[in-house]
């Protein structure tokens, strides 16, 4: 069955487009607070993909921990600290100058990841597991989300999902970790700011002058 005949696949593609739009908004909007709520929307979208993959438990934890708990933490941090709005460099040349190293790392990792994914989805094992025919990015769509009487079943589905991901996309996962590290370093570099000594309080000024003198 082609992907456009399967409602599940269409829903997945729509969700994926939604997630990409939200991610784009996160890094391009003007205010940090706006980035935060776009990030929350993105995390909800990710939760929906878990639901589509029949992993209800991961869905519940994704929503309650990431879209709920971590989001509140981020919002408190953003609202209770002083920060510049417009953290995103406003011209392309500035952006490239600030992030050229991260961009290179990102491109290398992204190419690597795409090659690995394309390599995996061509394997006969993967095609068999995904139900033959078209590669099914959502795992086994024959397991219904509805009508799962026993809770053990839900855990089983989650376990299967994890095994499925780990078996088929195992090599990709360390690269994802590296990608996250690169993103973290990039954001630290973007957020770091050179302090002007005139802006500081007298106490701190005295302390800095003392440490410089020593």
């Amino acid at each position: 069955m082609a992907f456009y005949e399967d409602p599940l696949q269409i829903t997945f593609i729509l969700t994926a487009i939604y997630i990409i739009i939200c991610m784009f908004m996160v890094i391009t909007v003007e205010k940090v607070m706006q980035s935060t709520y776009w990030l929350i929307m993105m995390l909800v979208g990710v939760a929906v993909t878990f639901l589509l993959a029949n992993s209800e438990i991961i869905f519940a934890f994704q929503i309650s921990i990431y879209a709920g708990g971590i989001a509140v933490l981020l919002l408190f941090a953003v609202l209770l600290t002083e920060h510049d709005d417009a953290p995103f460099p406003n011209t392309l040349s500035k952006f490239l100058r600030a992030t050229w190293m991260q961009l290179i790392i990102f491109l290398v990792l992204a190419v690597n990841m795409i090659v690995l994914i394309l390599d995996t989805v061509d394997k006969p094992d993967y095609l068999r597991e995904a139900g033959g025919g078209t590669p099914n990015v959502l795992g086994d769509s024959r397991i219904p989300v509805y009508g799962d009487e026993n809770v053990a079943g839900a855990f089983e589905i989650t376990e299967n999902y994890t095994l499925f991901l780990w078996d088929n996309f195992g090599p990709v996962i360390p690269f994802l970790g590296l990608l996250l590290l690169a993103a973290l370093l990039g954001s630290v570099k973007l957020a770091i700011r050179e302090w002007d000594i005139e802006e500081l309080s007298d106490e701190m000024k005295a302390q800095i002058l003392k440490s410089e003198a020593s």
Binding site: E56, A60, I63, A67, G68, G69
Partner: peptide
Amino acid sequence: AGNFSIGILYIFAIFSVFPPMMMV
């Protein structure tokens, strides 16, 4: 309407989106 196996966990999860949205 939908007999989810995660039942009450689903309700708690959905409910946890409420506090950040109140702040937003």
